[in-house]
Design a protein around this nucleic acid. Structure first.
Lengths: 169, 169
DNA sequence: CTTCATGCAAACGATTTGCATGAAA
DNA sequence: TTTCATGCAAATCGTTTGCATGAAG
């Protein structure tokens, strides 16, 4: 998977979408798209904002948020809520549907696919008369690396107490 | 399932936990426990707070939050993040493990079980060398009732624009 | 009497919003 | 020239925190 080619295609799709919806094709919007598509996945708004700033690209947080919303709307991005108070974004074009496995200590995210999830969706939809439009499956645990070490060790520099989800696990 | 009996048992477990950890057995803490266990499930902190207030029980929001955290810690409650910016709590004693199906229009929550989820957890844990400690599966869709009506109709009085999760589906 | 939980109000932090400016069409 | 997106700062809102008071032990 050539990143440049992927970015070019995503740009084209975004351009088409903006045209079709009579929205403005501003450089800021394309900059956010490109940053998301070139960033290691699962970035939050602040990461995208800082990455653009690091490249001395002048943009405001508000525009980053607006554009991410737009990208979700046109299905070029997916929004995830892995933990409370922090939305993470992932590119949606050029990658197949998958779910996530998260390490509660180092927060590493692994992606996986399992056809049984789709089967469960369909089955429950029928059972309860719902028209299913999507799902979110997150497995929580400790990666092999963190299992060897002490789980209660300080999380890596980037993270803080608030980073660990209080939900689910 | 007799609610009174359930509450009594949960109270006992909480009492034991507080004693064992040398924490104070205050009336506020038991009031929150009881409210959670008597409330239709999936209540948020504000609902619990208002319910206590409605019964003219004087308590502060801070205490409600503190106690809910405590209940999660001692595994008498589970915290869910069905939507951004709002944690919901569910009693954990006296109900078996299950997952959730949520209507994107009326926000009704249905619970379901499917053994395949456990199988998936185990399989992925092995595959990636993770020790799995929990999971969260949420199916999003439209319930039969909301399918007949217009999905874009105003959500019910209690909810607002912000209520609909922007993530996942 | 000595903690420790409570209540209040202020602080927090991610996200949203209102409005004036400036760029896209 | 006419929108409409941007940038900024202020507002929002669920949740957390600091500190003085009061109750549990």
């Amino acid at each position: 998977m050539n990143t440049d080619a992927l970015v070019r295609q995503a740009r084209q799709l975004f351009d088409d979408y903006l045209k079709a919806h009579r929205l403005r094709r501003t450089p800021e919007r394309f900059a956010v798209l490109e940053t998301l598509y070139r960033t290691n996945n699962h970035a939050d708004a602040e990461e995208i904002y800082r990455q653009l700033r690091r490249r001395r690209y002048a943009i405001s947080r508000a525009t980053v948020y607006n554009t991410l919303d737009l990208l979700v709307k046109c299905e070029l991005a997916v929004r995830h809520q892995f933990e409370p108070h922090l939305a993470r974004y992932e590119r949606a074009y050029g990658s197949r549907q998958h779910d996530h496995l998260i390490c509660l200590n180092c927060r590493q995210v692994v992606e996986f696919c399992d056809p049984r999830i789709h089967a469960i969706s369909t089955r429950m939809g029928e059972l309860f008369g719902y028209r299913i439009s999507g799902h979110s499956l997150i497995l929580y645990g400790y990666c092999s690396n963190c299992q060897s070490q002490n789980h209660h060790a300080k999380p890596s520099a980037k993270s803080s107490v608030n980073d660990l989800p209080k939900s689910a696990p």
